[in-house]
Design a protein around this nucleic acid. Structure first.
Lengths: 186, 186
DNA sequence: TCCTCCGGTGGGCATTCTGTACAGCGGTGC
DNA sequence: GCACCGCTGTACAGAATGCCCACCGGAGGA
């Protein structure tokens, strides 16, 4: 199996193609967003994360250097943050997911954030507009365990009220590809 | 730069260590959850996704074969789903994130799900307990654009009511490491 | 108590990919 | 018209992967 992707520069011993500049994509906007090739590259990597740069160049029918350059640029621009392992909380023993909306008393924001950040079961925290002030995504080992987690989360001065919604199903797991396609199409 | 991680078998030309079986971890539970070594491996990969199996074995002070075996097992058990690229919606031109709670009329569930799944800006969808029936995570190019997205999301028969909360800040971006550590410690 | 199974360790080999340089072509923009 | 930038091929050395083998040692079963 082939190694992995990584940043670097041009050059590359790869597939066929006569010689001299053959194809020449319309050149990416470079300015903002991504172009079609970037989109195809991201999609390819998302579908088969373990293929290397060379394999990508073959699939995409472009030179290896091009793929490497695109990858470097995407990472530099922050479009691609990294290739970290996707860990499934359920497989770790935390199959219950819930969203809690918290109401914070004035001026306690900083402390509450620090507190929430210290709880392992808190996977995500957003400050929001609307009824509540914050929204956290939490996981637990079971519904019973969820109670323990919630107690720990809301048991802190500064949190005046909270409401929790347990996630039952997940018809659309976190995805980004459709958006990538749309951005690339633009 | 080194290639990437991948499944395979034992064997490995690596670091020192006398000879014959030297260390011998207490043996992983194997049954459920993960052990300390798995935890360290995941953390290592999460922090430096681009290092290869060999590099991991060096950092973790274990044989290459061990790392490969652990990785294979973790992927087989589903703990690690993959190594897809982490794409940042903001970098794609969608800096606004919002959470919408939807109320669905009886029996329209399936249709609504299909509809929501067809909207690129819908990154995630959960059915939940509590006041609403579903919760979606959506992104938009701007607050003005958010209106367009919301219209598209809720403009569907079967959705009787909805309330949206815009995410202002993200004090704790999605993370999984603290949970991994806890699971490994267990 | 003995035996087998499983997981970890070391070593080695062929294959393949990566990292990097270089030179030419062609479209874009000044 | 000219310079700039991006893509294309090619080459080469270094390094990692995929895989096979033998051995050790603790856990669990007969």
């Amino acid at each position: 199996m082939p190694p992995a992707h990584s940043p670097s520069s041009p050059g590359s011993p790869n597939p066929p193609t006569p010689q001299g500049a053959s194809g020449t994509a319309t050149a990416p906007a470079g300015n903002d967003a991504i172009d079609a090739l970037d989109g195809r590259l991201i999609r390819l990597l998302a579908e088969e994360p373990r293929i290397g740069v060379l394999e990508c160049s073959r699939r995409l029918q472009v030179a290896r250097g091009t793929v490497q350059a695109r990858l470097d640029r995407l990472q530099a621009k922050g479009v691609i943050g990294g290739f970290g392992p996707e860990v499934d909380p359920a497989a770790l023993g935390y199959p219950v997911t819930a969203f809690a909306t918290l109401e914070i008393s004035q001026g306690q924001g900083a402390d509450v954030r620090a507190h929430l950040a210290s709880v392992p079961e808190v996977l995500e925290l957003h400050t929001i507009t609307g009824a509540g002030d914050m929204m956290v995504r939490i996981v637990a080992r079971s519904n019973a365990d969820l109670q323990r987690v919630i107690d720990r989360v809301v048991g802190f001065d500064g949190i005046v009220r909270s409401s929790t919604a347990i996630a039952l199903e997940n018809p659309v797991p976190y995805r980004i590809l459709p958006l990538v396609d749309q951005a690339a199409a633009e």
